[in-house]
Design a protein around this nucleic acid. Structure first.
Lengths: 145, 145
DNA sequence: CTCTGTGCAAAATATTTGCAGGCTC
DNA sequence: GAGCCTGCAAATATTTTGCACAGAG
């Protein structure tokens, strides 16, 4: 099915989303699909093999986020992190407030939550996405306290 | 009970938290307790009656957040928002991606979620807090599309 | 008096805007 | 060829750091 094709066929994914399949975008998606944790813009620039202009990267990530190809995650660190969505199971994160370690969290919150929310609020009729992150202190940081 | 006292007795709240009860902090808390939505640092500076130095404000809010007096909220806007916790029921938010309108959301997610999370992750033994925000397009922005 | 809190200057980071030229479709 | 994409320069915004002085306890 479509979902599966997209895991590897990034040009098709981009075109389906109405974006042009340029070499830069394709290799960025290839890179992101191998990363396991959300990365900052500057971290992407460092680890990514090819050079990308900072501005282009910001713009590309924003476009991708708008299309749901990547997800922007805020870890209360004063700079955004991004992770690929395509080909991954929906998940959340738990972040260490001391060392900033990030671990994925597979909480299967019922889809019902969003419906529930829509019944309670007054000025919104639909939800596009949500963020859910947990914060704590990781076991290593507790020991080395 | 203690909780209630703190709603109004900010000097006592500050001292209980190990912070000094300075005039600036007290009036900042009084100001925040009257605000209904999370505010950015610059918004606080504009609306707050007295002058506060930007740096002091950043440091104060961070200290308050560490003590759980205020809560830092990220709306994917590239700058943090803060709201007071003391005297408020735990809640989340729904944010309009077009106009940035914010509405409170009272989802009573079971306390069990955090316990649930701790069973699934491997490097964490406790959670200090979590964030949960919903994103969508508000009814006004849909009409005026 | 001691130690935390505040203000000011300055730096470091993060993000956005405008424009000219390049490349996908 | 048209219109989106990219890179570069520069501006803007956000957050942090260092230090001297002030004020709470």
């Amino acid at each position: 099915m479509k979902q599966k094709e997209h895991m590897t066929d990034f040009p098709a994914l981009l075109r389906d989303m109405g974006l042009k399949a340029t070499p830069g975008r394709i290799s960025l998606l290839e890179f992101l699909s191998k990363e396991s944790k959300p990365l900052t813009v500057s971290a992407i620039q460092k680890k990514f093999g090819k050079k990308i202009d900072t501005v282009t990267l910001y713009r590309t990530l924003e476009d991708f986020a708008d299309k749901g190809i990547v997800r922007r995650v805020d870890f209360e660190h004063s700079h955004a992190h991004y992770e690929i969505v395509a080909g991954r199971k929906h998940h959340h994160h738990i972040i260490c407030k001391k060392c900033e370690k990030v671990e994925d969290v597979d909480v299967c919150e019922s889809e019902g939550v969003e419906r529930n929310v829509l019944q309670k609020v007054k000025d919104f009729s639909f939800i596009t996405n949500h963020s859910l992150e947990f914060f704590g202190i990781c076991n290593q940081c507790i020991k080395s306290n």
